[in-house]
Amino acid sequence: MDETGKELVLALYDYQEKSPREVTMKKGDILTLLNSTNKDWWKVEVNDRQGFVPAAYVKKL
């Protein structure tokens, strides 16, 4: 969790967005987890953008 109590995830792999609903991340990025109710796609925030990334590409910290 960060200082505001939000849950964080670590990008395990690079991911290039394939639609406007997704976000690009690089391996090693720390992202804010917004929603993990879907087992396949998690909603995150990175670089002031919100979108989805494959759940298998990130790990909760």
Rank of each mutant, 00 (worst) to 15 (best):
S36Y: 07
N47V: 10
K39E: 11
G51P: 00
G5F: 13
G51I: 04
E17G: 15
E45W: 07
S19L: 08
Q50Y: 06
A11E: 01
F52M: 08
K43I: 14
G51D: 01
D14C: 05
G5P: 15
G28A: 03
A11Q: 00
N38M: 09
L8I: 08
L33Y: 02
T32R: 13
L10C: 09
T37P: 03
E45I: 09
K27A: 12
F52L: 08
D48M: 10
D48P: 05
R21T: 13
L8N: 05
V44S: 00
K39W: 07
K43T: 07
E3K: 14
M1Y: 13
K60H: 08
D14S: 08
A55T: 05
E45Q: 14
D48Q: 12
N35P: 03
G28S: 03
Y15I: 01
T4N: 13
T37Y: 09
P20K: 10
Y15K: 01
L12F: 04
L61R: 03
T37V: 09
D2K: 12
R21Q: 12
V9T: 02
I30S: 03
E7C: 15
W41Y: 07
Q16D: 14
M25N: 00
S19M: 07
D29M: 15
E3M: 14
E17T: 08
K60L: 14
P54E: 02
Y57E: 03
E22F: 06
L10N: 03
K60I: 12
V9N: 01
T24S: 15
V53C: 03
V23G: 02
L61S: 04
S36K: 07
E3H: 14
T37L: 08
S19D: 10
Y13G: 05
L12W: 04
Q16W: 14
G5S: 12
K60S: 08
Y57T: 08
Q50L: 06
E7M: 12
E22S: 05
L31K: 00
G51V: 04
D2L: 14
L10P: 00
L34P: 01
E22W: 03
M25S: 01
V44Q: 00
M1K: 14
R49H: 07
M1V: 14
K59D: 08
S36M: 09
D40N: 12
N35Y: 06
G5H: 14
K59H: 10
Y15M: 01
W41Q: 02
V23Q: 03
D40E: 10
K27I: 06
A11V: 10
W41V: 02
L61Q: 05
K18W: 04
T37I: 09
G28C: 11
A11N: 01
L34Q: 03
T4Q: 12
E17C: 12
A55E: 04
F52Q: 03
Q16I: 15
D48A: 10
W41I: 03
E17R: 12
T37W: 08
N35F: 05
K43V: 14
N38K: 06
E3Y: 10
E7P: 09
W42E: 01
V44D: 00
L34V: 12
M25W: 01
K6E: 09
G5V: 15
I30H: 05
Q50W: 07
N47A: 13
N47Q: 11
R49I: 07
G28Q: 02
V9D: 00
A56D: 11
A55Y: 02
K59I: 14
E17Y: 04
V46L: 15
L10E: 11
T24A: 06
L8A: 06
T37N: 12
L33R: 01
L33M: 03
K43C: 14
D2H: 14
T24H: 04
E3R: 13
K43E: 14
N47E: 13
I30Y: 06
E45T: 07
E22G: 12
L33G: 01
Y57M: 13
V23F: 11
P54K: 03
V58W: 01
L61D: 03
N35I: 07
E22T: 07
V46A: 15
D48T: 09
T32A: 10
Y13A: 10
W41E: 04
G28T: 02
K43N: 06
D29A: 07
N35R: 06
M1L: 12
K27S: 07
E3V: 14
K43M: 15
G51Q: 01
E3W: 09
V53I: 08
T37F: 09
V44K: 00
K27Y: 05
E3P: 14
E7I: 15
V9P: 00
E7V: 15
Q16K: 13
T4Y: 13
N47D: 15
D14F: 04
R49G: 04
D29G: 04
E22C: 06
L33I: 05
K60D: 05
V58C: 15
Q50N: 07
A56H: 11
T24C: 06
T32V: 15
S19I: 04
F52V: 07
K18N: 10
M1N: 13
L10R: 09
Y15P: 00
L10S: 04
L61G: 03
V44T: 01
K59N: 06
E3C: 15
V46S: 15
L61W: 07
P54C: 04
S36V: 06
N35A: 08
T32G: 08
W42C: 03
D29I: 04
K39N: 10
R21N: 14
R21C: 15
L34G: 01
V58T: 04
F52Y: 15
V44H: 00
D14K: 03
V58D: 01
K6G: 09
T24Q: 04
K43G: 05
K39A: 12
M25R: 00
I30D: 01
S36H: 08
P54H: 02
E22A: 05
M1Q: 14
V9M: 05
F52A: 03
D40I: 14
T32N: 07
D14W: 03
L12Y: 04
T4G: 14
L10Y: 10
Y57I: 07
L33E: 00
V23Y: 03
A55N: 03
R49T: 06
R21I: 12
L61E: 04
P20T: 09
W41K: 02
T37D: 15
N35M: 08
W42F: 07
Q50F: 07
D48N: 13
D40M: 12
V9W: 07
L61H: 05
F52E: 03
K59L: 10
K6T: 13
A11T: 03
W42T: 03
Y57V: 07
R21P: 05
N38Y: 08
V46Q: 15
P20D: 11
R49C: 06
D40Q: 10
W41T: 02
K60Y: 09
N35G: 07
K6Q: 10
Y13T: 08
V53G: 00
D29T: 08
T24I: 03
E7D: 10
I30G: 01
Y13M: 10
K60V: 12
G5Y: 12
L33S: 02
G5D: 12
V58Y: 01
K26Q: 09
R21D: 12
I30N: 02
D29H: 05
D29R: 02
K59A: 12
K39L: 10
L33P: 00
E22K: 04
V58R: 00
L31F: 06
L12V: 07
F52S: 03
K6D: 09
E7F: 10
Y15F: 07
V46M: 15
T37C: 14
P54V: 01
K18L: 09
V58I: 08
L34T: 04
P20R: 09
D2E: 13
W42Y: 06
K26H: 10
K6F: 13
L34W: 05
I30E: 03
Q16R: 10
V58A: 03
V23P: 01
N47T: 09
D14G: 06
K18A: 10
K39D: 11
E17L: 07
W41A: 02
Y15Q: 00
V53P: 01
T37R: 09
F52T: 03
M25P: 01
P20Q: 10
G51L: 04
L61C: 12
Y15E: 01
V23H: 03
S36F: 06
S19Q: 08
D48R: 09
A55V: 06
Q50A: 11
N47W: 09
D2Q: 14
R21A: 13
K60R: 13
K26V: 09
K26W: 10
V44E: 00
G5R: 14
K26T: 09
V46R: 15
P54F: 03
L31Q: 00
Y57R: 07
N38T: 06
T24M: 04
L8Q: 09
A56G: 11
Y13L: 10
Y15T: 00
Y13S: 08
S19N: 11
K39H: 11
E45V: 09
E17H: 07
V46I: 15
E17D: 05
K6V: 12
L12D: 03
K18I: 07
P20F: 08
K27R: 10
D29C: 07
W42M: 03
